[in-house]
């Protein structure tokens, strides 16, 4: 699949992962690369962009026996943006899906 295309959706995926609980960078990167075929390195720039856009904040949390982990957490703005974008995307995806299906049906 087109990488450029995927990247736009990835932001939404990251936000959805942070919706229920705060996670640290590696956790997000690991989870995403398990289900979507992307280079591991792409997630961190997205996190940073979300942070500079004010959708997430970070804090350090010291774990027992290890370096402090940087946790990402949704801001209020992040939460509302996620809800909006999510609804928009689902609507969009539904339309695209139905259009694509019609096309293949015609061919057959």
């Amino acid at each position: 699949m087109n990488t450029q295309y995927k990247k736009g959706v990835l932001e939404l995926c990251v936000l959805s992962m942070l919706k229920d609980k705060d996670r640290y960078g590696y956790e997000i990167s690991d989870n995403l690369s398990k289900s979507i075929d992307i280079a591991d390195g792409t997630v961190y720039p997205i996190l940073r962009k979300l942070k500079s856009d004010g959708l997430v904040t970070t804090y350090l949390s010291e774990e027992s026996g290890g370096p402090p982990r940087k946790y990402y957490s949704l801001t209020e703005l992040g939460k509302s943006t996620f809800e909006n974008d999510r609804a928009e995307y689902l609507e969009f995806a539904k339309t695209v899906e139905s259009m694509l299906k019609e096309k293949t049906d015609e061919k057959e």
Partner: peptide, 9 residues
Amino acid sequence: LEYEQHFAF
């Protein structure tokens, strides 16, 4: 630092 941690994990 973030990438260093990625390596560590």
